[in-house]
Simulated scan of single mutants.
Amino acid sequence: MLEVSAINVAYGHAQILRDLTFSVKAGEILCLLGRNGAGKTTTMKAIMGLLPLLSGEVRLDGQKISSLPAHQIPKGGIGYIPQGRRLFTELTVAQNIEIGLMARGSGREVLHDVLALFPRLRERFHQRAETLSGGEQQMLATARALCLRPKVLLLDEPTEGLQPSMIEAIREVITVMRDRGVAILLVEQRVDAVLSVADRVAFIENGQNLETLDADVLRADHTILERHLGV
């Protein structure tokens, strides 16, 4: 589904990613884990074409997408929920979702499906996004991305700063999308959240691969997390 092959990325003269390689299959949740500054958010931006690659490539369903302009990549079926959500806060919930629908020409049936996943957004449909709680804003950012009917969903720390009930709501939606066959790449600092949803975990450090393991291995042996993360 999504293949990231030996990508190298730099900010100016500082190289951040070094031959980073991984893949995410349809119906799988792969979590990127690493210490702060390991290159996780940079990886997300590189996949979305927001940062140029020095070398390497990104493929979706076998087709190279890393040479496409950034605005074309979501149209191919990649939804991205960045850290900080990036909503149009002065617009209503309905208008934010409409932007997501327009991006890939989705119809009313997609709208109804998204609102079924997030019933609280239906209640807030005509409120401005800036009036929502942090958890509701995260729901809206996720709903907008799902309007693309994505094959692949990228989430960058979706539970950051949320209360437990909101974390559980987001976790349930991520699991539903995985069960529908969506490939999910998750960046998450909360180890408990990772272990509750991930199928595999890829550890990175200084922009390089360390190892990729089945999440069941980590659930059984927490010393691996201690070795890589110090937790």
Rank of each mutant, 00 (worst) to 15 (best):
L2D: 02
S5H: 14
S5K: 09
Y11W: 10
G12C: 07
Q15Y: 11
I16P: 03
L17M: 12
T21F: 05
F22D: 07
F22M: 09
K25L: 14
A26P: 01
G27H: 04
I29F: 03
L33G: 04
G34E: 06
R35F: 13
G39L: 00
T43L: 08
M44W: 13
K45S: 08
A46Q: 04
I47K: 00
I47Y: 00
I47V: 03
G49H: 07
L50I: 10
L51Y: 04
L53G: 00
L53F: 11
L54V: 15
L54K: 12
L54E: 13
V58K: 02
R59L: 11
D61I: 11
G62A: 05
L68A: 10
P69H: 07
P69D: 06
P69F: 08
A70Y: 14
H71G: 05
P74G: 03
K75Q: 15
G76I: 12
G79P: 00
I81T: 06
Q83M: 09
Q83E: 07
Q83V: 11
R85V: 01
R86G: 09
R86L: 12
L87V: 05
L87A: 07
F88R: 06
T89Y: 12
T89W: 13
L91N: 05
Q95F: 10
N96C: 09
N96R: 01
I97E: 06
E98W: 12
E98K: 12
G100I: 01
M102I: 15
R108V: 15
R108K: 15
E109N: 13
E109P: 12
L115S: 01
F118M: 07
L121H: 05
L121Q: 03
L121R: 01
R122S: 12
E130H: 15
L132C: 04
S133I: 05
G135M: 07
E136G: 04
E136H: 09
Q137R: 08
Q137E: 06
Q137P: 06
A141E: 01
A141C: 09
T142V: 08
A145V: 00
L148K: 06
L148M: 11
R149E: 11
K151N: 12
L153Q: 03
L154P: 03
L155G: 00
D156G: 03
P158C: 01
T159I: 11
E160W: 02
G161I: 11
Q163N: 13
Q163L: 15
M166I: 13
M166A: 09
E168V: 10
A169M: 11
A169F: 13
R171N: 09
R171L: 06
E172C: 15
V173G: 05
V173D: 02
I174W: 02
I174Q: 00
T175P: 04
V176H: 14
M177F: 04
R178V: 00
R178F: 00
R178Y: 02
D179L: 08
R180H: 05
G181S: 08
I184W: 04
L186Y: 02
E188G: 00
R190K: 14
V191S: 02
V191M: 10
V191G: 07
D192Q: 14
D192K: 10
D192P: 03
A198Q: 05
I204H: 00
G207Q: 03
Q208L: 11
N209R: 03
L210T: 14
L210H: 08
D214M: 15
A215E: 04
D216Q: 15
D216F: 14
D216V: 07
V217W: 09
A220W: 10
D221Q: 11
T223W: 05
R227Y: 09
R227P: 00
L229D: 00
V231I: 12
